[in-house]
Every structure is written in structure tokens, then in C-alpha cells.
């Protein structure tokens, strides 16, 4: 039944994990950036869903995978703009706005998707780089390297640049930051926009590079897992990427178990990444690093008061 002659099981799981981790990392980085600025984006799941659909559809219509990715990112940016308008400018409750966005966007994707995408759709996909010799190290789609590069940029901006300091100040004490001359609303909106764009891009990568297909249930809870991982990682971009990789490995393992026919209900196997998230969240509450340098933005979820 299985046919992976050149690869042993561990390598296969590793590769599947990295492939799944890269869209996850992008969306997670976006969430970290936006939460560091003080805005929670619970619409993540919906933004990824729409990004997956639009990326796939545009690629099918125009035959260009890269155009698909750009369209995914663009629609994410739009949804991010909606969230920024609600959460930053109007001062709406971020949780309600985010949940609304998520439910509406996943619903819209599931509803519009089947009208747009038919069995005849033939989109261009993003394929793996052919580096046959070092396949386990280098044979990933280019989007994986994009995720890693963005991660490095995020780390360096948040820790060392003045922009990063302005972002952290906006998320920590927006009033003090405003008094220091930071335009808090502008900083927060930009971060939400970037977060939305990365979520949309992540969705497009999910459908065009990882799954190479589109289903109406597409992100399948990935957005929610990410929202749990962000606090767990202490709002640090490097650590959140690591957690994404771990969770992606659990997911790959779970899929592998289903393929080789482990005698467990598929539903139980499907639960694995979510159970792993729960365990990780509990461990995060009692783990010693909670006491160390902890970056929780203290104004997370709270609009600027003036």
C-alpha cells in the first residue's frame, strides 16, 4: 500500500511536517505581530480559509501559482483592513469582532468555493525544489524558505529595531506610547494588516503548495491552534515557529498513522494535534519559562484610551 522506496518513515514524516509547518508559521508570525501591537485577531481561521480559496481559484483561472499566492495575500490584507477598522479605529470588542470575522469568512469560503472551483479547475501548483541529493534538507517548496526568511525578519524587527519597539510599546502601554509620539493607531492597524496578509498567504500556500487541492473545510482548525500557540510561545516569533513545527509533526504523524492503518478510529487520530495543543497549553502554564522574560502585551485586547 505504501510506496516510499527512497525514504524511510522518519524522513517522510519530517518532510510532511516541514511542509505543513510553513503555512502555519506564516499565519502564526502574523498573529504574533498583531498581538504584540495589542490587537488579538481571532479571525485567523476565516482569513486562512478565504486565502486558501482565493489562492486556488485565481491560480486556476490564470494558470499562475504565484499570482494565486499574491491574490491570497491580497484578500487577507483586505480582511485585515476590516478587522483593523473594527478593532483599532472604532474600538469594537476584539474578541467579538474576531469571532464574527472567523465565522463569516469560513462560511463564505465554504459557500462560494464549490461555485468557483469545479473538478475541471486546473490550477498551477507550487512544486518542491528538485535537489534530489539533499531532499530531506533542501527539497521543500520555495514557500518554506519564505516562511523562514519572514521569521528571521520578524525576530530582528521585534527585538532590535525602533519599529519593533514602537510595536511593543503600542501593545504594552498604548497611552504612554502615544505620549512618546508613537502613532499607536497607525502602528496597530499596520500590524493587523500584515497579520491579515500573512494569514491569507498562509491559506494560499496551504491549498497551492501543501495540499495541492482545495476542500471546503480547508484550514481545519489550524487558525485556532495557532491562536493557542501564540501565548504559549510567549509572543516570541522564534519560539512560535518552533511550536508550529512540533504541531505540524504531530499532524504528519497522525496522517501517517491513518495511512498505514493503525487500528484507531480516524476521529481519535484527527484529535491528536488538538490534544497536543491542549497539553502544550497546560504545560505552558506551569513551565518555568513563564516566570522568566514573559512578553505578554499588557494592553492586549484593549483599545487606546484618550
Amino acid at each position: 500500500m505504501m510506496d516510499w522506496p527512497a525514504m524511510n518513515m522518519a524522513t517522510a514524516i519530517w518532510m510532511a511536517a516541514v511542509a505543513y509547518a510553513s503555512p502555519m508559521m506564516l499565519a502564526a508570525l502574523g498573529e504574533v505581530i498583531s498581538e504584540r501591537a495589542g490587537v488579538m485577531n481571532l479571525g485567523l481561521e476565516g482569513m486562512i480559509a478565504v486565502g486558501a480559496l482565493v489562492g486556488y481559484g485565481v491560480s486556476a483561472d490564470h494558470g499562475s501559482a504565484w499570482l494565486g499566492l499574491a491574490a491570497g495575500g491580497g484578500v487577507g490584507l483586505l480582511l485585515g483592513a476590516v478587522h483593523a477598522a473594527l478593532a483599532v479605529w472604532i474600538g469594537a470588542d476584539q474578541i467579538v469582532a474576531g469571532l464574527g470575522m472567523s465565522l463569516a469568512a469560513t462560511g463564505a469560503a465554504a459557500f462560494l468555493g464549490p461555485m468557483w472551483i469545479t473538478w475541471r479547475s486546473q490550477p498551477a501548483f507550487i512544486s518542491e525544489l528538485s535537489a534530489s541529493r539533499y531532499k530531506a534538507l533542501l527539497g521543500f517548496p520555495p514557500t518554506t524558505y519564505l516562511a523562514l526568511a519572514l521569521g528571521l525578519i520578524a525576530v530582528s524587527v521585534l527585538s532590535g529595531r525602533r519599529l519593533g519597539i514602537a510595536i511593543r510599546a503600542s501593545g504594552d502601554s498604548p497611552e504612554a506610547a502615544e505620549a512618546l509620539g508613537v502613532r499607536v493607531r497607525a502602528v496597530r492597524s499596520s500590524c493587523v494588516l500584515v497579520g491579515g496578509m500573512l494569514a491569507g498567504l498562509s491559506g494560499a500556500i496551504l491549498s497551492l503548495a501543501y495540499a495541492q487541492t482545495w476542500t471546503s473545510t480547508m484550514p481545519n482548525g489550524m487558525g485556532w491552534i495557532i491562536i493557542a500557540l501564540v501565548p504559549l510561545s510567549g509572543w516570541r516569533p522564534g519560539r512560535v515557529m518552533l511550536f508550529c513545527l512540533l504541531l505540524a509533526a504531530v499532524n504528519a504523524l497522525q496522517i501517517r498513522f491513518q495511512i498505514i492503518g493503525v487500528k484507531l478510529s480516524a476521529s481519535i487520530l484527527d484529535m491528536m494535534p488538538y490534544v497536543a495543543t491542549l497539553i502544550a497549553v497546560i504545560a505552558g502554564r506551569i513551565w518555568p519559562w513563564r516566570k522568566g522574560r514573559w512578553n505578554e502585551p499588557s494592553a492586549l485586547g484593549r483599545p487606546l484610551e484618550q
Binding site: R168, A169, D172, S173, A176, A179, L180, N295, S298
Partner: peptide, 11 residues
């Protein structure tokens, strides 16, 4: 004080 608690003095 108009200071951001999580940042260093220099920041």
C-alpha cells in the same frame, strides 16, 4: 510616569 514598562530605559 509615561514609560513603557516592558521596554528598557534606553528603548
Amino acid at each position: 510616569f509615561a514609560l513603557v514598562p516592558s521596554l528598557t530605559g534606553l528603548e
